[in-house]
């Protein structure tokens, strides 16, 4: 009874946040609602027993994406010289979009209600868990059973970064990503930038290490590490790297490169991306470790944005 009340309340609050993010006139407000929405969705995932997803949502949805959107908003304001105007509403387009969304929602809801008993792959995963090299079934799926998806996804992140880099101005190319951040030594922000990173580092590494046994892993750990880096730079304790920096580029690609190399090595075992059960455990941990590095670097660079021209600093 009380469980249903909780779930119902949660659903209503989620819908309210989503509605406000969509319908609100003010872009800043929409971003704040989006952040709030991420926090609420993480709770919903917990209620569904999907701790891994909740972790990812808390880290990426509520954490990093919010920062990304705030930075984007500030960038638009800077370029346009004023608060970005809310999207001019074109009645016909808006109505058509709303109608399409309504039809799709009704269709999905109807289909969902008529679904047979869900028959996922939990049984298959459990049967093969011992040979996967991971104790956490989610990690087993991500790094072994469906490792090819994960490998491609880690490259999707890089593609997004390349896309953002194409937005740089030509004369700024090669320079430091994003804006230069300055703080006064001893200020609240600077102190905060000193205290948080060690804790964050600990948490990030813990999440990766714990990932093979319990919820966690490269994506969640990498996001936390990216956040740590971002805080350090925003607090003015470090400069963002140059986009032409060799070490940065090596960090960006090392995860996917090692994962790809492992995939190719699998052909000696007769297929592609084969992890021999005897070695799967440490192989997964090694891949997770390098993936974490690459994901952290990529996500942080996504947030910093393209390099800005020197004279504007």
């Amino acid at each position: 009874m009380i469980a249903s009340i909780f779930d119902l309340t949660l659903c209503l609050v989620i819908l309210a946040a989503a509605g406000a993010a969509t319908l609100g006139r003010d872009a800043f407000m929409a971003v704040v609602f989006y952040i709030v929405y991420g926090i609420l969705i993480a709770m919903a995932w917990l209620r569904l027993g999907a701790i891994d997803v909740a972790l990812a949502e808390a880290a990426i949805g509520a954490g990093l994406t919010g920062v990304l959107l705030l930075a984007a908003l500030a960038r638009v304001a800077r370029k346009a010289g004023k608060e970005p105007a809310s999207a001019a509403s074109v009645p016909a387009t808006t109505i058509a979009t709303a109608l399409a969304a309504l039809v799709i929602t009704i269709g999905i809801a109807y289909a969902f209600l008529t679904l047979p008993e869900p028959q996922g792959l939990q049984g298959h995963v459990a049967e093969n868990l011992a040979a996967s090299g991971a104790e956490n079934p989610v990690t087993a799926v991500l790094l072994n059973f469906r490792g090819w998806d994960t490998l491609l996804e880690s490259i999707v992140l890089l593609a997004a970064l390349l896309g953002i880099w194409t937005l740089a101005q030509d004369e700024a190319w090669g320079g430091r990503a994003g804006l230069r951040h300055v703080t006064r030594p001893g200020s609240v922000l600077a102190q905060f930038g000193r205290i948080l990173p060690p804790i964050g580092l600990l948490v990030g590494v813990y999440l990766v290490w714990a990932g093979s046994k319990q919820p966690g892993g490269a994506f969640q750990g990498g996001t936390v590490l990216a956040a740590v880096w971002i805080v350090t730079i925003m607090a003015g304790l470090m400069q963002a790297p140059r986009v032409a920096d060799r070490a940065l580029r090596a960090a960006l690609v090392i995860g996917p490169v090692i994962f790809l190399a492992l995939a190719v090595a699998g052909i000696f075992a007769g297929a592609f991306l084969v992890l021999p059960p005897a070695h799967a455990g440490w192989l997964i941990l090694a891949v997770e470790a390098v993936l974490t590095l690459s994901i952290a670097a990529t996500l942080a660079m996504l947030v910093f944005g393209p390099p800005e021209p020197e004279e504007k600093r």
């Binding site: 952040i35 926090i39 993480a42 917990l46 701790i51 909740a54 972790l55 808390a58 880290a59 509520a62 954490g63 990093l64 919010g66 920062v67 705030l70 930075a71 908003l73 500030a74 960038r75 800077r78 994003g178 804006l179 230069r180 951040h181 300055v182 703080t183 006064r184 200020s187 922000l189 600077a190 905060f192 948080l196 804790i199 964050g200 948490v203 999440l207 714990a210 319990q214 919820p215 966690g216 969640q220 996001t223 936390v224 956040a227 971002i230 805080v231 925003m234 607090a235 003015g236 504007k312 600093r313």
Partner: peptide
């Protein structure tokens, strides 16, 4: 762990917000 991540990243958005209000994104409030 989820609560831990949320608590750790809670400050991030606020810092980004504070930073974004500076004209050039730099500077200390």
């Amino acid at each position: 762990d989820v609560a831990l991540v949320l608590a750790l990243l809670a400050a991030l958005a606020a810092i980004a917000f504070v930073k974004s209000t500076r004209g050039e994104g730099e500077g200390d409030p």
